[in-house]
């Protein structure tokens, strides 16, 4: 299991357009990726490719989230998703 932490950069938090961009990118990656707020138990982690899950996560601007994945290519996949989270898509 590989983990990466990222700080949500979008001013509106992880919903609306930023959530759509992130879910779409997560959905295009062949490995399964989960997302949770930092400090939340691993079993509360949600499917990162689900825009509805992302919206219910309620991550605001500046919140730290944890991405997790297994398998081949997981590290690269997580790195690319961290970059998306740490970009302000409203700017």
């Amino acid at each position: 299991m590989i983990e990466r932490k990222a700080t949500v950069a979008s001013r509106v938090g992880l919903h609306a357009r930023p959530a759509a961009i992130f879910a779409e990118a997560a959905g295009e990656i062949p490995v399964e990726i989960t997302i949770a707020l930092a400090g939340e138990p691993i079993e509360e982690a949600m499917d990162a490719s689900s825009i509805l899950s992302l919206m219910s996560l309620g991550a605001s601007h500046g919140d730290v989230v944890v991405l997790r994945a297994d398998g081949e290519g997981a590290a690269d996949a997580l790195d690319s998703l961290v970059r998306i989270l740490e970009t302000d898509h409203d700017a």
Binding site: A20, A23, E24, G27, M46, D47, S49, S50, I51, L52, S53
Partner: peptide, 8 residues
């Protein structure tokens, strides 16, 4: 995205 959302 919501239309084929895994959670839904």
């Amino acid at each position: 995205l919501m239309a084929a959302d895994p959670m839904l």
